[in-house]
């Protein structure tokens, strides 16, 4: 019951806040007992990455090149996100960008120009590592060619300080799907890990049926979920829906990041998929940031993330002096 109350509180706070993405703090498995120690040894043997605490930020859906309505601010929220990340007291080790870096253009040169603009803004991030997956606006028209030229493969994996990260591409086939080849790779990629390994999957569209009528789904996402099912410590981060959302499905926790361009409403409350109108008094309303802490006291079998909200406001647009960060710890 306490959890559900806290969850409502989190959602209420999130709906009021504005900002830029999600900050994750990870201290994988430290102090989690003998099983964690054994897992740590196993992970180090398998990937050479020692377990150590770290933080990372999730940003999503900047749509560089999009011009209003509903958002006449262009890249301002993205630029503000970069500035805010750089100003964090604890510099994140890693930034994940979960798709729709750019807004599509049928003119190839124009789309390439937008991708370069994204890269120029992202290059200002003072973080050691930036990784991206494409959204359909990046890769839906050209099968991911421009994305690959700019960033490399659209799906891949890597290990970072004891956490296994997997980038899944559910946009480049134009339809919301992963495809048999990628699913086979995904299964093979995870096979070398023990079932208690901490795994973070990041992708663009939700892997489950959040709202198929709004194309908020991945048609073969259930097959990816089947691959993940044996693993006990899985977090899936995604974008696409331009609003915060969290779902727990079996052992897997799914979190959506807000957008850096405009927000969509709650699909349970409105019939049509239309962006929330721009509010010039509160231009970043419904854009948000969340801090996720790895709970070092829980064993890896249980959910080991907790979330804090960060509420931001900007003087230029909201009349509040400077950037305010209000951290509200929440237990999910």
């Amino acid at each position: 019951m306490a959890d559900s109350i806290e969850r409502r509180k989190f959602l209420r706070i999130a709906s009021m806040s504005m900002g830029i993405g999600t900050l994750y703090k990870v201290a994988p498995l430290l102090g989690a007992g003998r099983e964690a120690h054994e897992l740590g040894v196993s992970l180090k043997e398998s990937n050479g990455e020692s377990i150590a605490p770290f933080t990372f930020v999730q940003l999503s859906d900047a749509h560089v090149g999009f011009s209003g309505p509903p958002d006449p601010l262009g890249t301002k929220a993205f630029e503000q996100a970069v500035a805010m990340v750089n100003a964090l007291p604890q510099r994140p080790d890693l930034v994940l960008f979960t798709g729709d870096l750019t807004h599509d253009s049928e003119v190839k040169d124009e789309h390439a120009k937008r991708m370069r603009q994204f890269q120029q803004i992202a290059a200002q991030l003072k973080v050691p590592k930036l990784v991206c997956v494409p959204g359909e606006h990046d890769a839906g028209l050209d099968g991911g060619q421009l994305f690959r030229e700019s960033f490399g493969p659209t799906n891949y994996s890597f290990d970072y300080r004891g956490v296994h990260f997997v980038a899944l591409d559910n946009v480049s086939r134009a339809k919301p799907e992963l495809g048999a080849e990628q699913l086979a790779w995904f299964k093979k990629d995870l096979a070398r890990f023990p079932k208690t390994a901490p795994i973070v999957v990041f992708t663009h569209r939700p892997l489950f049926d959040l709202k198929p009528e709004w194309e908020w789904f991945t048609s073969d996402g259930d097959e990816a979920m089947n691959v993940l099912a044996p693993y006990k410590n899985v977090t899936v981060l995604y974008g696409h829906i331009h609003r915060d959302d969290e779902h727990v499905i079996a052992n897997t926790h799914h979190y959506a990041a807000r957008s850096l361009i405009f927000a969509f409403p709650d699909p349970e409350k409105v019939a049509d998929k239309k962006p929330i109108p721009f509010d010039k008094e509160h231009p970043f309303k419904n854009l948000g940031i969340r801090v996720v802490n790895h709970n070092v006291k829980k064993p890896p079998q249980a959910s080991s993330f907790s979330i804090e909200d960060v509420e931001l406001s900007l003087r230029e647009y909201s009349g509040i002096n400077g950037i305010q960060q209000i951290l509200k710890p929440v237990s999910l």
Partner: peptide, 13 residues
């Protein structure tokens, strides 16, 4: 019923 094969900037609706 939707178009779920990305076809451009108005595809989402």
């Amino acid at each position: 019923l939707i178009c779920d094969h990305f076809c451009g900037s108005g595809h989402g609706n």
